[in-house]
């Protein structure tokens, strides 16, 4: 209980710093580009358009019973958040060494800031997703109100991975490259473009369900595409996987954070 109170106090104290760092990320990212912040919206839209054209028109992928475009975009939105936020978090400690070495700032702020910054982008990409949901006639239902639950789990999971990676990367720079490979592999192990039933292999099907990202994406698809309420099992799987990974990340990060200054 005491540690939770400490976290809240610390967040209150450093809330302004977090806000400033997030807004710095925004300002710096789009500085000197003609379209500016519009890229936050445009970039994912165009990327998704490319993927949509390739997978639904060139490869003619299809998932029976649902609109494939919505199916694909739901998966992409979630996965892109994870991949970008975890990548940025990983290098956040190393990149902010100039600060860490000079003033006292709780170090968890850096991965957290990155996850929140990409989180805002994630919320923006929901706009094109919903445009497609309406345009394809998929429509919305009351269960859409449950979607923030999956956002929260996704955020917790990504934060956990971000803490873990950012701590490891300080001691082992190779991680920056290794993770690039892992992430590519992870993309294909997550049913983004395909459906688990396409695998025609019960063993793989079961195995891939242990991928937490599958759980969050599946939660969203259950609501958006299949239009029913996720089962209690789904709720539990999302929360438990996210909480466990977050806990692991926090423990590893906390244990090592005092050593960061010597290794950067």
């Amino acid at each position: 209980m005491k540690s939770i109170r400490n976290i809240i106090l610390s967040l209150k104290k450093y809330g302004f710093l977090i806000k400033q760092l997030v807004s710095r990320d925004f300002k710096v990212k789009y500085k000197r580009s003609v379209l500016g912040v519009a890229w936050s919206l445009l970039y994912p839209v165009l990327m998704m358009a490319v993927m949509a054209i390739i997978f639904s028109n060139v490869f003619k992928f299809n998932v029976p019973g649902v609109n494939y475009l919505v199916y694909l975009l739901t998966g992409l939105t979630y996965f892109n958040y994870f991949s970008e936020a975890s990548n940025l978090s990983m290098s956040s400690i190393i990149a902010n060494f100039g600060l860490i070495n000079k003033v006292y700032i709780p170090k968890y702020i850096f991965p957290l800031t990155k996850c929140l910054f990409v989180g805002i982008n994630f919320l923006l990409t929901l706009i094109p997703l919903y445009v497609v949901i309406f345009a394809t006639g998929t429509g919305v239902n009351i269960y859409h109100l449950l979607l923030p639950y999956s956002f929260l789990c996704l955020l917790m999971f990504t934060l956990g991975i971000g803490f873990l990676l950012s701590a490891v990367a300080v001691f082992l720079r190779d991680m920056l490259y290794i993770y690039g490979i892992v992430l590519t592999l992870w993309t294909y192990l997550t049913p983004i473009m395909y459906d688990l039933s396409m695998l025609q292999n019960k063993f793989f099907e079961t195995l891939l369900k242990f991928n937490p990202l599958y759980q969050y994406i599946n939660f969203a698809r259950t609501i958006i595409l299949y239009k029913h309420c996720p089962t209690v099992g789904q709720f539990a799987a999302c929360f438990v996987s996210a909480a466990l990974v977050l806990l692991l990340g926090v423990v590893v990060f906390k244990k090592n954070q005092d050593k960061f200054v010597y290794y950067i």
């Binding site: 710093l17 400033q20 760092l21 710095r24 300002k27 710096v28 500085k31 700032i105």
Partner: peptide, 17 residues
């Protein structure tokens, strides 16, 4: 990359104001 006034806020936040 940020302007001086933006940096006043950023640096101030870093200093814990």
């Amino acid at each position: 990359d940020l302007s001086a006034s933006e940096n006043v806020y950023l640096n101030g936040a870093v200093m814990g104001y």
